[in-house]
């Protein structure tokens, strides 16, 4: 009987030792690895993060101008929205041609909202275009509205129309989308007749009134000079009673 209990003791001690060491070994190995994470774990810690879009056209030059416009026109840092023509001249610090060239890469992203002479009301086509382009935000943070007026009529009145056209776009966006952050997103510029009139380069852009013809300068070549000049002048008037709208895919 005594022998049997000695055997029992030996067997049980062996079992206890086995269980003790086995469990300790399994857990200990994992705990060691826990404090010495492998390289895969370190790599996982450096995953990319969500950022705003940054397209190839976002050159430092463009960003500087946009930043100036946004800062001086009240978008960055809150407060007043919009820029008047005189302020814009100082904010952009570039000439008309350079200013328009900044928007050239947005031809497929933006659109031109056209207005009737001496009017600032949006028609159905304009509203549809604004809705479509506004909805296509993707990774952009800033929505620019650059309103204009044609050079016919008085300068002061044209500036007023330009201002009202920019506001029409903003008010439509506010009514339609009820976005509480809209003022942080929309940059309004209203240009009078004296700054950065749209040229025929903008014929490539989608227009809210596709029936309004827009021809590149080369297309006027076959016409008699006088007729061509008249047609071009009319086209310039039509195209500048407008607001150019687009999201800007740049990180500022």
């Amino acid at each position: 009987m005594k022998t049997a209990w000695i055997v029992n003791g030996v067997v049980m001690v062996a079992m206890v030792l086995g269980l003790w060491l086995g469990t300790k070994g399994m857990v200990g190995a994992a705990v060691h690895r826990l404090d010495h994470p492998d390289e895969a774990g370190v790599a996982r810690a450096a995953a990319p993060v969500l950022t705003q879009a940054e397209q190839a056209y976002c050159t430092e030059g463009l960003k500087t101008v946009l930043r100036n416009v946004l800062t001086k026109c009240g978008l960055i840092g809150g407060g007043r929205k919009g820029c008047q023509p005189k302020e814009l001249r100082n904010a952009a610090q570039i000439d008309d041609r350079e200013f328009n060239a900044l928007f050239a890469p947005l031809a497929k992203r933006g659109g031109v909202i056209l207005f009737d002479p001496t009017k600032s009301e949006l028609d159905a086509g304009s509203k549809a275009m604004i809705d479509k382009l506004w909805a296509d935000q993707r990774g952009a943070s800033w929505f620019f509205v650059v309103a204009r007026a044609s050079p016919d009529g008085k300068t002061e009145e044209n500036e007023k129309y330009s201002h009202e056209r920019a506001n029409s776009v903003l008010f439509h966006l506010e009514d339609r989308f009820k976005d509480p952050d809209i003022e942080k997103k929309v940059g309004l510029l209203w240009l009078g007749e004296e700054f950065a009139q749209l040229g025929t380069d903008f014929c490539d852009w989608d227009r809210s009134r596709p029936d309004v013809a827009c021809h590149r300068e080369s297309e006027f070549a076959g016409m008699p000079k006088r007729e061509a000049a008249k047609a071009l002048a009319q086209q310039n008037k039509d195209m500048n009673r407008s607001a150019v709208i687009s999201w800007i895919d740049c990180r500022l």
Partner: peptide, 22 residues
Amino acid sequence: PDTKKKIWDSMQRFGIPNKIRI
């Protein structure tokens, strides 16, 4: 169009400011 915009709005309002990992 508004539907997809809501996804982007959410990214602009929450995802990007909070640097959410992709």
